[in-house]
């Protein structure tokens, strides 16, 4: 049919041309998008790559004017050296102790407070909750000055207490868990009361299991907080017996007289970073939900 009518053929050809052109543009755009993303991803990954590759080089190879992109001779001894140079073992134990104790205490406090705000009725509940949320606006540095003075008065300088107690209560976590508790129907609580179940038993058997994802998020963020905290520990507990890992890492490589053994330093950095990556790899879901709602790091 189209054989006889040239015009229609021409028209169809035009359409084909246009759609082919569009397809080319579409593919080009896709390629550009992927190119942009891959380049950005490489930039983001580069420091990690450089950390690992440097940590496996000998000092001489690291100092070559023309750098090698992968060690010619892979040297694992840097990692052992890092452990001894920065006494990472001790730092690791200190950090684990502070992290675990403060996480456990923080969980108990958060669960109890969130329960009171979500389920119990008492005078001034709304006012008090609003006041708590209000404190979240104030930058932490404002608290630090007085807390530093308070710690001095208590005689808590260079103890584990000073690393655990001052920042134990997080208003944000209480808020997060309260929201979660509020979603659990009140009927369950009333039914439990009729059955004569105590508050704490109900909390433990019903509320806690039902809000486990939030509790896991809190645990991870709190542990990461201990692992990454630097400023406060550096101010108040910077003695070898109580020093935390980030602090130790920074201190172990700053007193040097410009003669820094970078491969060993990079090995130490890699050791400190490794647990964070493992947590991220296996528990990413919990970190991401916690983070997107808080906007805070650690």
């Amino acid at each position: 049919m189209a054989k006889n009518k040239n015009e229609i053929v021409m028209h169809e050809r035009n359409i084909q041309n246009v759609s082919a052109k569009q397809r080319v543009v579409k593919v080009m755009v896709k390629v550009m998008i992927y190119l942009f993303l891959v380049v950005m991803a490489l930039i983001v990954l580069f420091p990690f790559y450089w950390m690992i590759s440097s940590s496996l080089k000998s000092l001489d190879e690291y100092r070559l004017t023309v750098p090698t992109f992968w060690p010619r001779q892979v040297i694992f001894s840097n990692y052992a050296d890092a452990f001894t140079t920065a006494s990472l073992g001790r730092l690791f134990l200190n950090t684990a102790y502070v992290g675990i104790v403060s996480t456990l205490l923080s969980l108990v406090i958060t669960v109890l407070s969130a329960f009171a705000f979500a389920r119990l009725e008492f005078k001034g509940r709304e006012t008090m909750f609003a006041a708590l949320l209000g404190t979240m606006m104030i930058p932490g540095e404002l608290f630090t000055i007085t807390n530093y003075a308070t710690i001095n008065t208590f005689g808590w300088m260079n103890t584990f207490k000073v690393l655990i107690f001052p920042f134990l209560v997080s208003v944000f976590y209480i808020y997060l868990l309260r929201q979660n508790f509020l979603q659990i129907p009140n009927e369950l609580y009333l039914a439990a009361k009729v059955d004569g179940t105590g508050d704490l038993k109900y909390l433990w058997k019903v509320m806690v299991p039902l809000s486990l994802p939030t509790l896991i998020s809190i645990t991870i963020l709190k542990m990461m907080g201990a692992w990454n905290s630097y400023v406060w520990p550096n101010l108040v507990a910077n003695d070898p017996a109580h020093r935390l890992i980030t602090n130790g890492l920074r201190n172990a490589f700053t007193d040097a007289t410009g003669d820094v053994n970078y491969p060993v330093q990079m090995a130490a950095v890699a050791i400190v970073s490794a647990p964070l990556f493992l947590v991220f790899l296996f528990l990413r879901k919990y970190i991401m939900t916690g983070v997107s709602r808080s906007g805070i790091k650690g």
């Binding site: 420091p47 964070l276 790091k297």
Partner: peptide, 15 residues
Amino acid sequence: FFLPYVTNSIAIGMV
């Protein structure tokens, strides 16, 4: 792209 978030800012600063 999320990877830099779970890092220690002192440690990666050293890198």
